[in-house]
């Protein structure tokens, strides 16, 4: 059982510990593995959606009438603005202007909250019109994909909140963690751009 570990020593050598720590040195690499994986997982969802759209084109087209393009456009703009604000927050942080950075982070979070509220009101309106998850194949994709995205938005808000706390506290200001949180938030924006195109705009 344990025999296959036999030739390795019982504990790591200092060189091995060094190597393991260097591997870890950049926290950005950590979040990036997640982001790339998430992009590809979402990519597979998008392709699945396209396939079903192709198979049930009429159903999808008529079901798309239930969506409100205005809401979709508004949500897209809100997220784009939030990304812009966050990029400004990061620029301020790199210039060591922490107070301004905190304000822009708050502005980003405000945009995120607007998105959440807007998304939920959009759902409420749709459900009120009898357009629910089980209505048809399009509605399944729509509610599910936007729901998963909303989950990402909520996690992103948590990350931004933590970022804000760190910016406020002089003892734990750290550009590297800020960059991780920002990268995640921009990915949320990026995914929404594709979801908006696929759900609202395709014909």
């Amino acid at each position: 059982m344990a025999s296959t570990n036999a030739d390795s020593s019982l504990d790591l050598t200092p060189a091995e510990i060094d190597k393991a720590q260097r591997h870890d040195a950049n926290p950005l690499d950590g979040i990036w593995i997640f982001i790339v994986g998430d992009l590809f997982i979402f990519g597979s969802y998008f392709v699945t959606y396209a396939l079903w759209r192709n198979w049930q084109h009429d159903v999808f087209l008529s079901a798309q009438r239930n969506l409100n393009l205005g809401f979709g456009l508004f949500n897209t703009m809100v997220l784009l603005v939030s990304s812009w604000f966050l990029a400004a927050a990061l620029k301020a942080m790199r210039a060591a202007d922490w107070d301004t950075s905190g304000r822009w982070t708050l502005a980003t979070m405000a945009c995120g909250l607007v998105f959440v509220v807007s998304k939920i009101s959009e759902w409420t309106v749709e459900v009120g019109h009898g357009f629910v998850f089980t209505s048809n194949m399009f509605s399944q994709f729509y509610f599910w994909t936007t729901g998963v995205h909303l989950l990402h938005v909520l996690f992103g808000l948590l990350a931004l909140f933590r970022l804000y706390l760190e910016v406020k506290d002089p003892t734990c200001r750290n550009v590297a963690t800020a960059e991780s949180a920002a990268a995640f938030w921009h990915m949320v924006d990026l995914l929404w751009l594709v979801i908006f195109a696929l759900m609202y705009l395709t014909r």
Partner: peptide, 14 residues
């Protein structure tokens, strides 16, 4: 959308 995504990747996410 994908071109926009690339701009987000390159310019915002650096």
């Amino acid at each position: 959308a994908v071109i926009k995504a690339r701009f987000v990747l390159r310019e915002f996410m650096e």
